[in-house]
Design a protein around this nucleic acid. Structure first.
Lengths: 132, 132
DNA sequence: TCATCGTATTAGAATAAGTCTAAAATTAGA
DNA sequence: TCTAATTTTAGACTTATTCTAATACGATGA
């Protein structure tokens, strides 16, 4: 459970009630919320927070390295508080997004990728969770 | 070089001048065009084609299995005529998108992913092309 | 305590991708 | 050729996101 105020101070961002509400939710969830979902949750703690402030805060957090954006479905960006390397699985039926631990897959370069300087990568898997 | 009219006939889609212009461009490029880029190119062959028709045709092609959508950058969907399995590399500096052949990478499941029925996957890599 | 100044927040306007709609145009078939 | 079905179109609409300009807040120094 990360303390929003401490995190904000460490990043030299002034802790305001609105930012605390955003950070407190987004850094302590295992979900991959959209901006709208963050807004909805942040309003439980700070009912007056505006959409613009949520976007401002999320973008600031991305810049400070507290969040990463993920492109997993058409139409919206998702904010991912899991900053360690990991892969993703998307359930096509429910839309649910799962983190897949980095060491569960091994990627080997069989053919040298000449001319490409890879700074990051991930595997994106789609399918469905097994019933039962 | 795929013949647009034959492809449309095979898919039981009526070949109209507008559709031919769209299909002819999008199935014969190695790029990963956005809808807007398809519109721009299709207008070279059929100057009157509308944005709506381009979207209609592209969506129809996706449904018929002639194209795949790819989520590679924020804000737009890209249409990919390469229907074989492959991975992607995105140059963060230029925005260029490259196909990476499927057999250049080997993905091994080290830890069994229990409960996930994976129907498709790909590796998405980001970085930059090496100068030189 | 109060005034001040920079920062933060806000509502709503603006933008951009994509979908929808209803009318007009085109095509296919009898 | 006539009719019905299909296709195309412009523009309205929706949704995610950014921008803007006015207001509110908060820390500081007198």
């Amino acid at each position: 459970m990360k303390d929003a105020i401490s995190v904000l101070r460490e990043c030299h961002i002034q802790p305001t009630p609105q930012r605390i509400a955003v950070v407190d939710y987004v850094l302590n969830t295992r979900a991959h919320p959209s901006a709208d979902e963050v807004l909805e949750h942040a309003r439980k703690k700070c009912p007056t927070v505006s959409r613009a402030t949520v976007y401002n805060t999320l973008n600031l957090m991305v810049k400070k390295g507290l969040l990463k954006t993920q492109l997993l479905k058409e139409g919206t960006v998702f904010f991912d508080p899991n900053m360690g390397k990991h892969h993703h699985f998307i359930d096509n039926e429910t839309g649910d997004i799962y983190d897949i631990p980095w060491d569960h897959l091994q990627i080997t370069e069989k053919e040298r990728l000449k001319g490409f300087e890879i700074s990051e990568y991930q595997v994106i898997m789609r399918g469905r969770r097994k019933k039962k």
